[in-house]
């Protein structure tokens, strides 16, 4: 999947699963403060993203803080399995 489509799909999922109700989100929206994500919602989102993009685990030192939707887009870009 091209990167821009992938990022768009991430935004769709993050918006659809917002605990505040489904909404359109932008890359600069803050996951906790603007979209109401708590620990359970982050878990739900992470597992949905794993299924959607077949994500691989990364080393701890590659981890980034998930403050904004853009951070999630970037992380999914790193973790998504690339076709062989």
């Amino acid at each position: 999947m091209p990167e821009d489509q992938q990022a768009e799909r991430v935004r769709e999922l993050v918006g659809a699963m917002s605990p505040l109700g489904a909404r359109t989100v932008t890359s600069s929206d803050r996951v906790v403060d603007d979209l109401g994500y708590d620990s359970v919602a982050i878990l739900e989102l992470a597992l949905a993203l794993e299924v959607e993009f077949d994500l691989q685990a990364i080393a701890e030192d590659q981890a980034v803080d998930l403050l904004t939707v853009g951070d999630i887009e970037q992380l999914v870009g790193q973790l998504a399995r690339k076709p062989a």
Binding site: V40, I42, L43, L45, A46, L47, A57, A63, D65, L79
Partner: peptide, 16 residues
């Protein structure tokens, strides 16, 4: 156990 690959989610799961 459910073990998320995304670090933030893994930490959330562990805290839970």
């Amino acid at each position: 156990a459910i073990t998320p690959v995304m670090t933030a989610a893994l930490h959330a799961r562990a805290r839970q």
